[in-house]
Design a protein around this nucleic acid. Structure first.
Lengths: 345, 345
DNA sequence: CTGTTAGCGCCTTCAT
DNA sequence: ATGAAGGCGCTAACAG
């Protein structure tokens, strides 16, 4: 529970009153000078500004926000900080938000639904003007997010979106990316391509899986359900699944992983077993994380325009914020992916 | 400049008054029920709580903070999000802060001093209860941080600390880490060890450099200034410096880099030139970033207890917050490093 | 146990 | 060009 008692020592904050007294002015005049209101004597303004500077006066945004009902703050909720993906998206979003005069408060959920719910409450209590969110792998119920919608606080999804809410979303063409990746493997002569898929609760998993299936079908390869493993993205399980695949009577000659961390982990396991990548088994990932270009062999992967995802999402959110609820758009912005061919395939 | 006009459409916020009216109670009673004050009829409380839940009532932290002069928010300012280091420190800090009931607002500075100054203003305006900071490579003037001290807002440095401020700091033993790393290289028979150092404005650069020098001295190796290159940590320059080193008349047989990204980049350059790591030239980094274990050859590096740094820093900060200014401690917590020996040396 | 009052720091009418 | 008064949503003394 939250503690509330006022600080015993009361740090002294410099307030408008302080500078009003000092300069023998009314609070309103000082306030006007500080906010750049035109109707205030140039000399007075100058004096106020100088004193403010000298005293390290900082406007109390809490008080201002209380009045204006605007905090100029947007919240960003991401499921994890494990890979470089989300930090980079955040950088893109912060860039756009910052330029538009918005602050950002960031919450990371450790892939936990509970934490996500708690984080939304925090955002609400702190009166953010809008939120950007990518859900956790556990999130199946969206009531905590629908509240925002109901309260008229704009929300924009990115990457891991919520299907049942009619709000703007920024995604990449996961289906197409997966399709092209698998298609490439087939062109290179691979016959048995396994897929380490993500949890079906995430739309991106589903789309990447469809792309995978479509590519097989297009190339007249029969789908072998044994080669598809859906897992919950906990890295420690990758080892088990990859070993399982390699132990099959007819093991795969390629693995298409739902994301880069999975692919990277898979490569480690394969190498540890003394098999060669890509000679014995090719590996392709999804996202083009920072580490992908560094591992040996370097990872072939479907690159996402990470920064652009963040920028676009922030852009859409800011547009919504200045719009009336009744006027909200439910744009879905689909960004393009690119197949980065490296040595692992 | 900041825009202030009140939203034209005024989203309706559920307030204590709403539920007071509905239940025919006074605001104070409702408030008490909501805050778990004991002196309130169980039935009344129940009714209030239920209605609040039903209406998605959220206490307006802005208003509360305005009164209590406490936002239960701590700010974290980091120089970059490039490597996995800072995101991980943040996770550690958030864990501790969250448990203690604190929110976190995170600012990333892109290694820009200007941005850092702007970010501190944001923190101030939003009345954070304290800040955790690691400075940018450009930061030489600390006035923007001293303001916090003067205002009685606790500040704790970590990793990249400010020497001229008497506040708590969380660091690792950079000197010792560097010493052991270089010593190890010497034990392995390396004779000419180069050092890609960081900018001298950062204490960590200086300490790691001292450790490097000390190890050489202890082993009676003459210091060759040509083998020490200080640079500003902009990754694109690594290539130039490494090539420069390799082109020397008597090139080094090992490189000790100030951090992992630098070491990783160095390895790439070396490999591209057709040289072998570690046979022709060994490489050692500092930090044990996520990518270090993945590259080929895997990187020998000095590991820092990343999460613990964040946890300790948050811990210290929270202690300060509840203390009176006059009672602030200036503890410097030095955490241990560990030499992780991998294949690059 | 509950209601009343004052005020956190600031901005915004309305006056002058 | 400046002052005075009211109120944002809430809590913290006071009263009953």
């Amino acid at each position: 529970m939250l503690r509330l008692k006022t600080d015993p020592m009361k740090r002294h904050q410099v307030t408008i009153i302080d500078i009003a007294k000092e300069l023998n002015l009314s609070k309103s005049t000082v306030s006007r000078a500080l906010t750049g209101h035109p109707s205030v004597n140039a000399v007075t303004r100058q004096a106020v500004l100088e004193l403010a500077e000298k005293l390290d006066y900082q406007r109390n945004m809490l008080a201002i926000s209380l009045i204006t009902k605007k905090t100029n703050t947007i919240g960003i909720i991401v499921p994890e900080f494990y890979s470089s993906f989300f930090p980079n998206v955040i950088m893109g979003a912060q860039e756009v938000a910052g330029k538009a005069g918005y602050n950002t408060v960031i919450c990371q959920c450790n892939e936990s639904y509970e934490t996500e719910v708690a984080n939304t409450k925090v955002m609400l209590a702190n009166q953010v003007d809008g939120i950007l969110v990518s859900i956790t792998k556990e999130t199946r119920n969206f009531d905590h997010l629908k509240i925002f919608h109901r309260k008229g606080i704009p929300i924009v999804f990115f990457n891991r979106v919520c299907d049942e809410m009619d709000v703007p979303k920024v995604i990449v063409d996961d289906y197409d990316g997966a399709y092209r990746a698998v298609n490439y493997l087939l062109e290179k002569g691979r016959k048995r391509i396994a897929h380490l898929a993500g949890p079906s609760s995430l739309k991106i998993s589903e789309k990447r899986l469809s792309g995978y299936k479509a590519a097989l079908k297009r190339n007249n390869i029969e789908l072998d359900e044994d080669l598809i493993i859906s897992y919950d993205l906990s890295m420690d399980k990758v080892k088990i699944y990859v070993n399982h695949l390699l132990n099959l009577e007819r093991p795969p000659d390629a693995i298409f992983a739902v994301n880069d961390p999975t692919a990277i982990e898979a490569i480690q396991v394969i190498k540890k077993r003394g098999l060669r990548v890509p000679e014995d088994i090719a590996v392709v990932g999804f996202s083009n994380d920072y580490a992908s270009g560094l591992i040996e062999p370097s990872l072939t992967t479907v690159s996402q325009p990470v920064k652009e995802i963040g920028q676009t999402a922030a852009q859409l959110l800011i547009e919504q914020i200045s719009r009336d609820v009744s006027d909200w758009k439910t744009i879905i912005r689909v960004l393009k992916t690119e197949l980065i061919i490296r040595k692992s395939s």
